[in-house]
Structures are given as structure tokens and as C-alpha cells.
């Protein structure tokens, strides 16, 4: 059931994550929280924060890949407990293409349990191949593709499952600036054409400012949410927003919030 726009798609309440000390002594690592957050249905939400502040931890908690020590997380009203909920698609920071499968084979992986007929599966695969500009590369192996294209394959593999929430953990971190901006546009396009909710973690402030409806700024470890910045961009937007004067103001505001935290995080290392 799709929650209506008024009720949040994801709710986090009092989330805390503490990692046990590594074997051989040391202190437990308080990575995250306590933290409250709501994701609205259909929005494009970004998270920025200094490195090591617990962004990936937050990401894995929402994905159901980790469990919080304290607090509750719910997706579409149902609590997430140690399993990736149906309807959530995940794209990792690291390249997660399967190198022994072709692009098509990688994408088809997501449909094994869909219960769709062969023909329906083919239609869906063709659709995401077109959407992610991968048609000519369908029978290539990942090793034959650039890093940006491999990340597109991973996104396509997630999209083919038609998730209602797409989680991306710094998916473009390894790409050069130009490719990153263009990939950002692609994600925007996908977001518009699927009506999914997007949750994007990034360390690039311009990327966050350009793509998002709302941006959460996190504190240094233990990660808490310092503030949430609303951009009020129109739904139809692309990287030309960079020229908009409000873009500069938003980036500046993000940086003001982050500057002290980044220094704090750097000192802690």
C-alpha cells in the first residue's frame, strides 16, 4: 500500500547505533544518533555530512542491512527488522556489478523473484536499458564499461524492481565532476519518471543542492541531524540550476552548517 502524501514513507525515531569495540580492547564506537527523521513520499532527499559521521550507517539502517541499538525505523508504516523490506532499492558506493554477468544479466538478477512472465521481464529490462542509456551495451561485460556506466548498471538493476524508495550511498563518489553532474541529471530524470522517493547520500554539496527537495546536514560523529534545508526547486529541473542565484545561497548555507563539523571531524582523526 502506498502511503498518502501526508504520512511519511519512512520514519526514524530515537535511532542510535553503537558499534561494539573491536576485539582486543578499545572503546565502543558511538556512530549515530539519537536521531529522528521523516522521509516524505515522493521527495528527493539528500544527506550531507563530514566523513565518518555515520552516513553509511544511517543508510544501512534504513535499508535493513543493520539494526539500531535503540529506536525504531518504519517503512510504509511497518517496522524494519533485520531484513531489506520489499519496495526498497539499494545502490552502493562501491561497484557492485557482477563481473561474470553481462549488463542484461546483471539487470535480470533483480527480477528472479518478481513472478513476472518471461515476456514481461524482457519488457521491463528493455525499459530500464533505455532509461539508463545502456541499450547498446546490453551484452557487454562490466569490465568493458567505464566506472560511470557500471554505476548506471547498478542503478538499472535496482530500478527494474520498481522500488518505491531508492537508496543511494555516494554512488558517484568515484566519478569525475562532469560525469557526476550528468549522472545526477539521470537520477533526477529517473526520479521524475518513476515517482519513487529518493534518498541520496553524498559528500558533494553542489550535488545535494542541485538535486534535492530537502537536504539533511549531519554533525560530526556521533551523527545527528543539525538542520534540514529546503530548496523549493521545481520538479522539472536539471544541472542548469547551477546558474540559478538561489543555488549559490543554498550551497553557502550548507557549507556554513558543515564547516565547523568538518573541522571537528578532521581533528578527531
Amino acid at each position: 500500500m502506498l502511503a498518502d502524501a501526508a504520512t511519511p514513507l519512512v520514519t526514524l525515531r530515537g535511532i542510535t547505533r553503537v558499534f561494539p569495540p573491536i576485539a582486543g580492547g578499545g572503546q565502543p564506537i558511538h556512530a549515530l544518533g539519537p536521531l529522528d527523521l521523516d522521509l516524505r513520499t515522493g521527495e528527493f532527499f539528500a544527506v550531507v555530512g563530514p566523513s565518518g559521521c555515520g552516513k553509511s550507517t544511517l543508510f544501512e539502517l534504513i535499508a535493513g542491512l543493520q539494526q539500531a541499538n535503540d529506536g525504531t525505523i518504519a517503512f510504509e508504516g511497518k517496522p524494519i527488522t533485520g531484513k531489506v523490506p520489499d519496495g526498497i532499492g539499494v545502490v552502493f558506493q562501491e561497484d557492485s556489478c557482477l563481473p561474470w554477468r553481462t549488463v542484461r544479466g546483471n539487470i535480470a538478477l533483480g527480477l528472479r523473484k518478481s513472478g513476472l512472465s518471461r515476456a514481461e521481464q524482457e519488457t521491463r529490462i528493455e525499459h530500464v536499458l533505455v532509461l539508463m542509456n545502456l541499450v547498446e551495451f546490453a551484452s557487454h561485460y562490466p569490465a568493458q564499461l567505464s566506472g560511470g556506466m557500471r554505476q548506471r548498471v547498478c542503478i538499472a538493476r535496482t530500478l527494474v524492481m520498481e522500488p518505491r524508495l531508492i537508496l543511494l550511498d555516494e554512488p558517484f563518489a568515484a566519478l569525475d565532476q562532469q560525469t557526476r553532474l550528468l549522472m545526477g541529471e539521470e537520477v533526477l530524470r529517473v526520479w521524475r519518471s518513476t515517482s519513487a522517493t529518493v534518498f541520496l547520500i553524498t559528500h558533494a554539496l553542489d550535488e545535494a543542492a542541485m538535486l534535492s527537495d530537502r537536504i539533511a546536514v549531519m554533525s560530526a560523529r556521533p551523527g545527528r541531524i543539525l538542520d534540514i534545508v529546503e530548496t523549493a526547486w521545481p520538479r522539472e529541473r536539471d544541472s542548469r540550476i547551477l546558474e540559478d542565484e538561489r543555488f549559490g545561497a543554498i550551497s553557502a548555507r550548507l557549507w556554513r552548517l558543515l564547516r565547523d563539523e568538518t573541522i571537528k571531524a578532521a581533528d578527531a582523526h
Binding site: 542491512l65 531489506v84 552502493f92 562501491e94 557492485s96 538478477l109
Partner: peptide, 13 residues
């Protein structure tokens, strides 16, 4: 085996 692939397996149920 890269850890990310094990995580992938979990996201693919």
C-alpha cells in the same frame, strides 16, 4: 568476495 556483493545478495532477498 567483496563485502558489497554479500550486501547485494541481501538486498536481492
Amino acid at each position: 568476495v567483496p563485502r558489497v556483493l554479500r550486501k547485494l545478495a541481501r538486498t536481492q532477498h
